[in-house]
Simulated scan of single mutants.
Amino acid sequence: MSVTAPAGFEAAGVAAGLKSTGKPDVAVVVNRGPRKVGAAVFTSNRAKANPIIWSQQAVADRIVEAVVLNSGGANCFTGAFGFQTTHQTAEKAAELLGVSAGDVLICSTGLIGTGDEAFRAKVLDGTEQAIAALSVDGGDHAAEAIMTTDTVAKMAVVTHGGWTIGGMAKGAGMLAPGLATMLVVITTDAVLEPLQADEVLRRATGKTFDRLDSDGCMSTNDQVTLLANGASEVVPDLEEFAEALTGLCQELALKLQGDAEGAGHDITIEVQHAVSEQEAVEVGRSVARNNLFKAAIFGNDPNWGRVLAAIGTTSAQFDPYDVDVWMNGVRVCTQGGPDRPREEVDLTARATHLIIDLKVGESTATVLTNDLTHDYVHENSAYAS
Rank of each mutant, 00 (worst) to 15 (best):
V30H: 04
N31Q: 11
G33S: 07
R46K: 14
I52N: 03
S71L: 08
G72I: 08
Q88F: 08
E91F: 00
E91Q: 13
T109K: 05
R120K: 14
V123F: 01
G126E: 03
T127V: 04
T127E: 01
A133R: 08
A133Q: 10
V136G: 13
H141E: 13
H141Q: 15
D150M: 10
A156T: 01
H160S: 14
G161I: 09
G162I: 10
A176Y: 09
A197T: 06
E199H: 14
V200F: 06
R202T: 15
K207N: 06
R211Y: 00
G216T: 03
S219A: 13
T220H: 07
T225S: 08
S232T: 01
E240F: 00
G247Y: 08
L248Y: 06
L248F: 09
L256H: 00
G258P: 05
A263V: 04
I269M: 06
H273A: 15
E277F: 03
V281T: 10
N291M: 11
F293M: 06
I297R: 03
N300K: 12
P302D: 02
P302H: 01
A310N: 05
T314Q: 09
Y321S: 15
W326Y: 13
V332K: 06
T334R: 15
A349C: 05
R350G: 12
E362I: 09
V367S: 07
T369K: 02
E379M: 12
A384F: 02
A384Q: 14
